[in-house]
């Protein structure tokens, strides 16, 4: 259950941004995550309700955008969709691929209220 630690880190980033912009509160937070981020969305949401208590983001909406898992083949150069434990090229079947999307765990944006 490392999601709580990750959420606490998220809250301190969000609070810092809110203070920098002299905001009164946070309206929404958008997270982008891929299937290989190592984080479970539901656990993150549960942890968020604990970590956001008594912060400027107490009533903020947490929006999670799921990012696709995509690989680029180092051999044939094609790009294809993949599964977390099957990152082989769908075109030529080679395992030597590079992940181009799907391991992200990003704070993408925050919406702030000035009043």
């Amino acid at each position: 259950m490392h999601e709580l630690a990750i959420c606490q880190s998220l809250m301190s980033q969000v609070e810092r941004i809110a203070l920098e912009h002299e905001a009164q509160s946070v309206i929404s937070i958008v997270i982008g995550m891929g299937p290989l981020s190592g984080v479970e969305a539901q656990h993150l949401k549960n942890a968020y309700s604990i970590a956001s208590a008594d912060t400027l983001a107490e009533n903020a909406k947490l929006i999670i955008e799921f990012l696709p898992l995509r690989v680029k083949c180092n051999q044939c150069g094609s790009e294809s969709d993949a599964l977390p434990n099957k990152l082989v090229c769908k075109q030529c079947g080679d395992w030597r691929t590079r992940l181009i999307s799907g391991d992200e765990l990003l704070l993408m944006s925050v919406e702030l209220a000035q009043t």
Binding site: H21, S28, K61, I100, E104, L106, S109, V110, E111
Partner: peptide, 28 residues
């Protein structure tokens, strides 16, 4: 995976309330 979300007409360029959101793109 995420570039389509943040381009000017992308999903994250405007919030649900129509206000501009602050783009961060930092690792959690």
């Amino acid at each position: 995976g995420n570039k389509s979300l943040i381009k000017p007409d992308g999903k994250l360029a405007k919030t649900e309330s129509g206000k501009e959101a602050i783009t961060v793109l930092h690792s959690l």
